[in-house]
């Protein structure tokens, strides 16, 4: 029997679901290998079902979302967070701890009582997440490889080394040594150093390596390189503001 799969989206740009739809060469193989019960972006048909694997995109920002996420969790054997919003809370979390949601709402809508909303949080703030496919958006190759393992019932192998590893394996020079603020050393690899390989400093879209990223050391190195603290903080917060050590950065 084919594994039952659901693909869901919450607050975010749906870029990760789009990435899956954009698989083109592999999409048919993928769809053929599984029993797709729900795919929010591809079809409005949603079956009430249990899932072997649920892929969930987006961050949780409303009570309704939280409730739906909890429902998905209950119905799913494995829940996989896809993309930075689901993994870390996304760009919409970058002001967490600085600007209250009520203030944000007031600024946008003129009233802080339009809806009840939460500060943007990753899925793991509310439910158990079995596996994370990070990135903004997720990496196609990584998704396919992980999907294969998940379809067989195995947890995929998580990447826990920094972007620098793949950057060096591709024999790129170091952008930090060229005077750029590159977040490669703190950021989860697996993207084959996509940006640094084009000479663009890593913006950290795959989130920090949990329990491992040397934030304090990086702050010192960036400071010594002459970067302003506000700029460093904004860069760090962009995709991983909910990481406790980054949340504390002044």
């Amino acid at each position: 029997m084919k594994p039952k799969v659901g693909i869901f989206g919450f607050t975010g740009c749906a870029g990760d679901q789009l990435m899956i739809l954009n698989l083109e060469d592999e999409l048919l193989d993928l769809v053929g290998a599984l029993d797709l019960k729900s795919f929010t972006m591809a079809s409005s048909a949603v079956e009430e079902s249990d899932y072997d694997v649920a892929f969930v995109e987006g961050s949780i920002t409303t009570p309704k979302q939280k409730q739906k996420l909890e429902e998905i969790r209950k119905r799913s054997k494995l829940l996989v967070a896809i993309g930075d919003c689901a993994a870390w809370g996304g760009v919409q979390a970058s002001c967490n701890g600085i600007l209250k949601v009520e203030e944000k709402m007031k600024e946008v809508y003129g009233s802080d009582k339009v809806w009840e909303i939460y500060e943007s949080k990753p899925l793991s703030a509310y439910v158990k997440v079995d596996f994370v496919l990070p990135g903004c958006p997720i990496e196609k190759e990584e998704f396919l490889r992980a999907a294969a393992s998940l379809l067989r019932g195995d947890l995929p192998e998580a990447v826990d080394y920094p972007v620098c590893v793949e950057c060096k394996l591709r024999e790129n020079g170091c952008l930090m040594l060229e005077g750029k603020l590159c977040l490669g050393p703190l950021t989860v690899g697996g993207c084959r150093a996509r940006c640094p390989s084009l000479g663009v400093d890593c913006i950290g879209c795959r989130g920090v390596i949990e329990g491992e990223a040397r934030i304090k050391s990086a702050l010192q190195v960036f400071r010594e390189a002459g970067f302003k603290p506000d700029y460093v903080r904004a860069r760090l917060r962009m995709f991983a503001a909910n990481y406790p050590e980054i949340l504390e950065v002044k």
């Binding site: 396919l144 490889r145 999907a147 294969a148 379809l151 192998e157 080394y161 590893v165 170091c174 490669g184």
Partner: peptide, 24 residues
């Protein structure tokens, strides 16, 4: 920064890791 660069550019570092890749 525990980035691994020192090892990855070293002419005598021997360490390697192994992964299995699975197709669909």
């Amino acid at each position: 920064l525990a980035c691994g660069t020192c090892n990855l550019v070293c002419p005598t570092c021997q360490c390697y890791d192994v992964s299995d890749l699975l197709t669909l």
